[in-house]
Each structure stands twice: as C-alpha cells, then as structure tokens.
Design a protein around this nucleic acid. Structure first.
Lengths: 200, 200
DNA sequence: CTCTGTAGTAAACGGTCGTTTACTTTTTTA
DNA sequence: TAAAAAAGTAAACGACCGTTTACTACAGAG
C-alpha cells in the first residue's frame, strides 16, 4: 500500500483547479502518477467519484478548521451571545488565518480555484462557492458586526471582506504572493483598529 | 445576411462563460442557433477562431469605454497631471459605471465570467484577467490615489476596489443582483465622502 | 507451497470531439 | 433571368473520451 488513492486525489485536484473538471481526462490524472488509467479504477468508481471525494475531503477539513478556531455554531440566539464577546484582536487573528488558508494552504488554495472554475456549470457548485468564499463569509461577518452593534453591518462586512477576497485573486496572478499577504495583514490590522475605536 | 457570424459569437460566449472553453463543443454552439456544425465553419476557421474573436471584441469595447469615460492614457507624467484634477464625484460616478458594466452589461458580464474560467489554464488568460479585473483596476486606483496625495495609496485602493470586486461574485450567485448593486453604490458614495474629507 | 486478494497493464468498447469533404439550397448580382 | 457567390446539410475522418474486460505480477497468510 503506497497511498495511491491519496495521490490520485491530490493529482486530480491539481488538474481540476487548473483546467476545470470537464477539461481534465482520466488519462491525464493517471499520467501524472505514472500509472495507466485502468489502474485508477481500482481505487475510484470513476472520474466523478474522485471529484466527489475532493468535495467530501474539503467538507471534513472545513469542519476541523471551524473546530480549531472555535467558530460558533447552532441556534441564532447562542451565536449572537458568542459574537458579542469577540474582541477586535480575535477578529484580526482569525481573518489573517483565513487569508493565508485560502491563499497558501495547498489543498484549500487548489480547492478554491476548482470551485471558481465550476461555479457556473452547476447550481450546487455555485452554492458551495458562495458558501465557502462569497456570501458565506460575508454573511458571517455581517452577523458578527451586527452583534457588535455597528450601525451598518452589511457595509462594514463588505468593506472588511472585499479586500481579502480581492487579494486572493491578486495572489493567483502574482509570481510572489507574499506582498499581497503582507498588504492583507495591514488592511486587517487597520480595520480592526477602526473596529476598536468604533466600539467606544 | 442575417448576422449569423454575430449570433455565433454571442452564443459561444454564453456557453464559454458557463462551462469554459474546453467543455463547450462546436456542436453545442451550432445547436443553440439551430444550424449544423458544418455551417459554422463558413463563418469561423474553427473553435479557437471564435474564442479569439471574442477577445478582440472585448478589446474593442474596452477601448470605446475608456474613450467615453476619458480615462487618461499615455506617459506617466501626463497621467499624474490629469489624475490630480479628478474630483471625488468623478471617481464615484466612474466607479458606479464600472460596477454596473461588469455586473449587468451582457457582453462584459459574460466575458468576465469566461475570463475567470480560463485564467488558470493559460498565462495569457491570467494576464488578461489581471489586467481587466484584478491588478489592472487596482493599480489604476493606486496611481490615482497617490496623485491625489493619499498617504497609503495601495491600502486605499484595495479598500476601495475590494468590495466592488467582491460584489460581482455576489451578483453571480444571487437571484436578484439589484441588492448587491445598491450596496455597491452606498459603499462607493461612502468611500468618495471619506476621500473628500481626507483631501482637506 | 499454494491460495487469495490487491494493484497493475494492455486492449477494446461505444460515443463524442474538432474538422473536412461533397453536395444542395438560398441569396445576390450583373 | 442566368450566373455566381454565400450559407447550410449530411456524412465521414482520425483522435480521444470514460469505462470495462481479460490477463499478469506479486504481496502476505495458512
């Protein structure tokens, strides 16, 4: 057992994230691993099965990340209560973690790009793309800022998250993402400082 | 002459913007128009030729848009001079135009989505995606804010453009984009007001 | 040493791909 | 109105698609 199933998953994700699901052939994936496409069917039922396994893997990783960062879940009442005790420093730290996660973590970065490529083909992929990257985080921050008592939480959330979202695309087109990450850190710190001042 | 060549261009763009270039077949395009794929080759040399014609068309439309909105071009010295005389109202008006252009103009909106789908396959497409949608506008605003004397033009540009960039993705996943557009208008107005205040 | 299950190869399957060809219909024009 | 040009059809081309099949190599267990 050489972990072939895992290597297939990663090789497929790399190709899906560059070319899109339809444009990648089963032969392409097998070729990356130096095996024939027939061998691939010993580990997965087919091309779609690999794709679905990637989705499941991301779901699992996302749950772990939410647990590690103590993201509140459950009924809205309890979430509001938890939100109110969040400090600006905690928001800044969590935002920097997310900035690096989607930009630099290999699996998450590849998955983000794959989602972007699939979002217009399938309503389910559009839903996932919104949930992980667009209206999901935006709604989360809107609720958070509302619980903190900001006067216009929707605007504040867009002003906070918009630059982060933009910088992921800057990273995708840059030879060296570190400058974009550094700018993101500055923007997050500045926004957190404003947040602290606005609460007084 | 029933403008078949033009209808092919638009039908192909619609499909490319949803599924990506590779995932769209020549038969798919022909089927949308109720003709056979053989007829398509009377108007274009092949699938790639249609794609290249779409790129050329966007280039042409972009030049027209820049002309209509008096976007300064030429040597850096003259641009700086032109930048310094720009008012916050002009920036807000131009930004709202761009917000609607990439979100609601049919051709531009489809082209934006097509670029997003092709950006990772081909370095040239990555370049165009950055130029039209990411580092292009961001660099433009950075230069503009620098000429206006803002202390941190890079941060200001990211804070200004990030939310716009995010809202295009919100529109893509929303049933009704009008709420996102309205929020964009508010954000642009608020940023322009801050800009006016910061200049004093 | 044999048995058993796993991982792999090579070839074939029907189907679709982009493109070309030969031919017909429609439209323009002189 | 007849010739010519343009636009469209149907079929075929070789290549590649995802998947299946038949067969081989080889590990560890009894």
């Amino acid at each position: 057992m050489g972990g072939t199933k895992e290597r297939i998953l990663l090789a497929a994700l790399r190709l899906f994230a560059r070319d899109g699901y339809e444009a990648v052939s089963v032969s392409d994936i097998a070729e990356q691993l130096g095996i024939t496409k027939g061998a691939l069917y010993r580990h997965y039922a087919g091309k779609r099965d690999i794709f679905n396994s990637i989705l499941a893997r991301m779901e699992q990783r996302d749950a772990e990340l939410a647990r590690d960062n103590q993201v509140p879940e459950g009924p809205k009442e309890e979430m509001e209560k938890a939100y109110r005790s969040v400090s600006a420093e905690q928001i800044a730290a969590f935002s920097k973690t997310m900035l690096r996660y989607w930009a630099q973590d290999e699996f998450a970065s590849l998955f983000r790009r794959m989602l972007i490529l699939e979002q217009f083909r399938d309503p389910e992929m559009s839903r996932l793309c919104q949930q992980y990257l667009v209206s999901g985080p935006l709604g989360y921050l809107t609720d958070l800022f509302a619980a903190l008592g900001l006067p216009e939480p929707r605007k504040a959330a867009a002003e906070f998250y918009g630059p982060m979202f933009l910088l992921w695309s800057v990273c995708d087109g840059a030879d060296d993402p570190s400058r974009a990450i550094a700018l993101g850190d500055e923007l997050i710190d500045a926004a957190a400082a404003r947040l602290e001042k606005g609460k007084e």
